[in-house]
Amino acid sequence: MSELHVISTGKQSLEELTSIIRDIHTYIDWLHLREKTWTSEQLKQAIDDLAEAGIPRSKVIVNTDADTAYEKMTGGVQLTYESMDAANARHLNIHWRIGCSVHSVQEAVKAEANGADYVLYGHVFASGSKPGMEPRGLENLRHAVRSASVPVIAIGGIAPENVHDVLDTGASGVAVLSGILLADNPVDAVQRYKKALTAG
């Protein structure tokens, strides 16, 4: 089954994010907390609040802050290519799923060699979060999939309408931010993504 990763947008309050995730978490495989302006204490509070709302800690992936992920017993960590240190993260928790964000085929291969369990590759299509930046496109995604043996998750401009094309490259799933979390109806949006992934 292709995976659906949902990544926090950095544009919502903890209360709003928790409310949405409470409604959609049964449809998603992983929730990434990528909140660059939050302190570690805010991040810890978020994980606790999400757990109290019924979202399993095992479904949460924390971006970059491995110490917080360890303390709060989340399911994994997401590292940047520049800070990729899977060995150290694995030392904290051998059961973690460790991901790495990459932007080229070479970075995908290097991340795998450095111990990543999967990579987020993008941005594949034009994305509002990357204004003016040329997307990598489907052929580069296909090359990354063929070059790395770990799962490659596509990110950037992913919509239900292009999920089929993404999966056709061999990608193992998609990662979505605003397409779900900033949708007028997040439940309807996540269901459309899930249907597209299931249809494959």
Score class of each variant (00 low, 15 high):
residue 5 H to F: 15
residue 7 I to Q: 07
residue 8 S to E: 05
residue 8 S to H: 10
residue 12 Q to E: 12
residue 20 I to W: 12
residue 23 D to C: 11
residue 23 D to P: 00
residue 25 H to K: 08
residue 26 T to N: 03
residue 27 Y to N: 10
residue 28 I to K: 10
residue 30 W to L: 00
residue 30 W to G: 00
residue 31 L to G: 09
residue 34 R to V: 01
residue 38 W to H: 09
residue 41 E to L: 14
residue 43 L to E: 01
residue 46 A to W: 09
residue 46 A to S: 15
residue 46 A to K: 07
residue 47 I to Q: 02
residue 48 D to Q: 00
residue 48 D to Y: 01
residue 51 A to W: 08
residue 52 E to T: 15
residue 52 E to G: 14
residue 53 A to Y: 11
residue 54 G to T: 07
residue 56 P to R: 01
residue 59 K to N: 09
residue 59 K to A: 07
residue 62 V to C: 10
residue 66 A to C: 08
residue 73 M to F: 07
residue 78 Q to F: 05
residue 79 L to H: 10
residue 80 T to C: 03
residue 80 T to L: 04
residue 81 Y to E: 13
residue 83 S to P: 00
residue 87 A to T: 11
residue 87 A to Q: 07
residue 89 A to V: 15
residue 92 L to I: 04
residue 93 N to Q: 09
residue 96 W to M: 05
residue 98 I to M: 04
residue 101 S to V: 04
residue 102 V to A: 06
residue 103 H to K: 12
residue 103 H to W: 03
residue 104 S to W: 08
residue 107 E to L: 11
residue 108 A to V: 06
residue 114 N to P: 00
residue 119 V to L: 00
residue 120 L to D: 10
residue 121 Y to C: 12
residue 124 V to M: 02
residue 124 V to E: 02
residue 134 E to C: 08
residue 136 R to H: 03
residue 139 E to N: 13
residue 140 N to A: 13
residue 144 A to N: 04
residue 146 R to H: 14
residue 148 A to C: 03
residue 149 S to E: 10
residue 152 V to Q: 08
residue 153 I to V: 13
residue 159 A to I: 09
residue 164 H to Y: 09
residue 164 H to C: 07
residue 165 D to P: 00
residue 166 V to I: 14
residue 175 A to V: 04
residue 175 A to S: 06
residue 175 A to G: 06
residue 176 V to C: 04
residue 179 G to N: 05
residue 189 A to G: 01
residue 189 A to M: 02
residue 189 A to I: 00
residue 189 A to F: 01
residue 190 V to H: 07
residue 193 Y to I: 02
residue 193 Y to V: 03
residue 194 K to A: 08
residue 194 K to V: 03
residue 198 T to G: 07
